[in-house]
């Protein structure tokens, strides 16, 4: 068995948050640069250029990339040979969040009760998803999720007979309905299968994958390419102002499901897709 202090996880989370809010991940920067190379009209070009300028300024002057510094979502894959020591893991992680959002002058966007809506004042609690995996390592994947894009996400309980065509139509419809709202060019996370909540979780997890990386499932990789082209032909463009770049990526994850169902969740992320990960 390997012992890991939960305080170390809190510290690693703090470090990620202090970076990811001020600096676009490398894969996102590259994807925006490539998109810029394909756009030939002035308005979409100018918007993509400003995304890169914003990134340069944010990194240099330590100003958050966006005022919506999000709700912190953490995926923890914990090796089953690990023993966690110290404070309860969520206490340690929330401490890391609170410290980063205070010291980094990051916006506190979390309300304690969704109906009463009083701000918690330190951007906690985060959203934590755990899974047990073989081995003695911990993989922590983190995103700070803004709600302009989160609000444009959808879940559909399709019929088995709807098939691939039905899923594709649902994804395209979701992107079209979202239009300019989620800050395109977006990243589209699609979760197919499982149960209602599993599909939603898969769609969020799909957003954690680096842009430009191949889907390990070859059949899904083919669909991603095809749907990407279909999304491009919607012509929404950067901030909905028209152009070729509506999405920077479509990422699909799937899971076994029931004979009677075809759940589909579409989780949309904004152009900045602030995500990162660490192995402990």
């Amino acid at each position: 068995m390997r012992r890991v202090a939960t305080a170390l996880l809190g510290e690693k989370l703090y470090e990620i948050l202090m970076k990811v809010n001020f600096e676009l991940p490398e894969d996102v920067r590259v994807a925006i640069g490539e998109a810029l190379g394909k756009e030939d009209q002035a308005v979409p070009r100018s918007i993509l250029e400003r995304l890169l300028e914003n990134n340069a300024l944010a990194t240099e002057k330590r100003i958050p990339l966006c005022q919506d510094t999000g709700m912190v979502v953490v995926f923890l894959e914990i090796g089953q040979e690990i023993i966690l020591e110290g404070d309860f893991v969520e206490t340690a992680l929330n401490l890391g969040i609170a410290r980063a959002y205070e010291e980094g002058y990051l916006r506190k966007s979390v309300v304690l009760n969704p109906l009463e809506r009083v701000n918690t004042g330190d951007n906690t609690p985060g959203i934590f998803h755990y899974s047990l995996v073989p081995g003695d390592r911990i993989r922590m994947r983190v995103t700070v999720k803004g709600f302009g894009s989160e609000n444009m996400s959808r879940l559909g309980m399709l019929k088995p007979g709807d098939g691939v065509a039905g899923v594709k139509a649902f994804v395209l419809e979701t992107v079209a309905l979202a239009g300019p709202n989620p800050c395109p060019p977006i990243i589209v996370g699609v979760g197919i299968g499982g149960t209602m909540e599993k599909a939603a979780l898969l769609s969020k997890e799909a957003l954690m994958r680096d842009l430009g990386s191949a889907n390990p499932d070859g059949k899904l990789a083919v669909l991603e390419k095809e749907w990407m082209q279909a999304i491009e032909s919607l012509g929404i463009g950067p901030m909905g102002m028209g152009g070729k770049t509506t999405a920077l990526g479509v990422h699909i994850k799937s899971y076994p499901t029931h004979i009677a169902g075809l759940p589909v969740a579409v989780n949309i992320n904004c152009h900045s897709s602030r995500h990162s990960e660490v192995m402990v």
Binding site: I47, R50, L51, E53, N54, L57, A58, K61, I63, P64, L65, C66, Q67, D68, G146, G148, C183, M239, C270, H271, S272
Partner: peptide
């Protein structure tokens, strides 16, 4: 009027 989303650092200027 529309402002570009996600470039809050630039707008601070």
């Amino acid at each position: 009027l529309i402002a570009v989303g996600g470039i809050g650092a630039l707008y601070s200027q």
